[in-house]
């Protein structure tokens, strides 16, 4: 799957989980850029992404992501 398409689908997941239709993601987006995105909602996002793409991240992968771009790379590599 193309990274652009992954990004679009991940953006929809973010909007749905964080209940904010205004969210626009880029590779550089970090938790500080989105008010609703904190350590708690982060896990909800991870679970939703895993379910949607039918993949499983390792704990280290989840804890290492520094921005959305790294999450997208990780999904693309699965």
């Amino acid at each position: 799957m193309e990274k652009n398409q992954i990004m679009a689908e991940v953006q929809e997941i973010f909007r749905d989980v964080l209940d904010n239709e205004d969210i626009v993601l880029s590779n550089e987006t970090v938790a500080d850029d989105i008010e609703e995105w904190d350590s708690l909602t982060h896990i909800q996002l991870v679970v939703a992404v895993e379910k949607h793409f039918k993949i499983k991240f390792t704990s280290k992968e989840i804890l290492m992501w520094k921005n959305v771009g790294e999450m997208i790379d990780c999904i693309a590599a699965k």
């Binding site: 350590s39 896990i43 704990s59 804890l63």
Partner: peptide, 21 residues
């Protein structure tokens, strides 16, 4: 503790839903 204990645990328990949290 959130970063070094809670988050790793929460990641581990993530498929247990609210009970995991």
């Amino acid at each position: 503790l959130t970063d070094y204990v809670f988050m790793p645990l929460n990641v581990k328990f993530r498929n247990m839903g609210q009970a995991g949290m």
